[in-house]
């Protein structure tokens, strides 16, 4: 009996493997069209980028192995490390501001009896406008002597502000532009979230004596958690990649005050011919994005349970 059972089990196993092999083969066949471009255009460049972090290369001569030098430079308080801090600072400033403003605008629009589509389109316009074009417009608006903002300040009797001249003010100015361009998306996502909320819940809260603030904090806010999580993750990744805004507006200055990782990568690789430093900063950027993604995956589980 035991020999027969073993033979049957063996037959089942071999049939199972034969069937799985065919399924696997079919699966691989279907994957090939997307797998080949992925390997050529994503995986190999990514691995090559990582390998280049251990080399000094100027695109022209032969790459020279320098070990961990580029990584040590990144963490030794140089421009590369500073650019990481600047990028995180921009994230810390712009994320709460854009999300807060987006939520406020969404709540206002949600209660607006008319003109909802018009205002929604106006607030969403920065999302569909080229960031380079926006940056050029803001550069002219921020000009100390000839800018529109200082012209307006003069009209109301105030002195001009040197928006892009001093490090602190330049960070504020770039942040203003970034918040302006990010708020539209936050408004749209929050508005969609608000329109999903069952009005009966708010009415029930009101009947139970909840104030508008309590309704918002205990009913609306938890129900918008998924929208908030989505926005935090997408906007963080977007801010981490900031390049056009600072390239056009300040070129990373004054000094290095607004040099983000994206700008540092560009300048290192394509202006200073230091591919090793550029790829090392790229890997640091990848690491930061990986952290954000891990955070997203963990938080998603919690939010789904709300």
């Amino acid at each position: 009996m035991s020999v027969l059972a073993a033979e049957n089990a063996s037959e089942r196993r071999s049939g199972f493997f034969a069937r799985m092999s065919r399924e696997e083969a079919a699966a691989w066949l279907f994957l090939v069209p997307s797998l080949i471009p992925f390997v050529i255009f994503t995986l190999i460049p990514a691995v090559a980028t990582f390998v280049l972090t251990f080399y000094q290369w100027d695109f022209i001569g032969a790459p020279r192995y320098v070990g961990l030098k580029n990584w040590i430079d990144l963490f030794s308080g140089g421009v590369a490390g500073y650019s990481v801090m600047v990028t995180l600072l921009f994230a810390a400033i712009t994320l709460p501001c854009s999300l807060g403003l987006g939520l406020a605008l969404a709540m206002a629009l949600d209660r607006m009896p008319f003109g909802k589509i018009v205002f929604r389109s106006i607030f969403f316009m920065p999302i569909v406008t080229s960031l380079v074009a926006i940056s050029f417009v803001f550069q002219n608006m921020f000009a100390t002597e000839t800018g529109l903002i200082n012209y307006g300040l003069r009209l109301v009797g105030l002195g001009p502000v040197a928006w892009l001249t001093y490090p602190g003010m330049a960070i504020v100015s770039v942040s203003i532009m970034m918040v302006w361009s990010m708020t539209g998306l936050a408004m749209l996502i929050y508005l969609a979230g608000l329109q999903q909320i069952d009005r009966a819940l708010l009415e029930a809260a009101a009947l139970d004596g909840a104030s508008p603030w309590q309704s918002f904090f205990h009913v609306v806010r938890p129900l918008l958690a998924r929208s908030t999580l989505f926005l935090v993750v997408t906007q963080t990744i977007s801010v981490l990649q900031t390049f056009e805004a600072v390239y056009v507006l300040t070129n990373g200055g004054p000094g290095q005050a607004t040099t983000t990782i994206g700008l540092f990568i560009y300048k290192s690789s394509f202006r200073n011919f230091d591919v090793g430093s550029g790829t090392t900063a790229s890997m640091a950027l990848f690491g930061l994005m990986l952290l954000v993604t891990i955070f997203q995956l963990r938080m998603q589980k919690r939010v789904l349970n709300v």
């Binding site: 550069q139 001249t165 004054p254």
Partner: peptide, 21 residues
């Protein structure tokens, strides 16, 4: 002289020149 615009000091000069100032 104005504080030179770090990004584009010549553009700054041209704007001021055209404005007659």
């Amino acid at each position: 002289a104005p504080i030179p615009d770090q990004k584009d000091s010549s553009g700054q000069a041209q704007s001021l020149f055209i404005s007659g100032n």
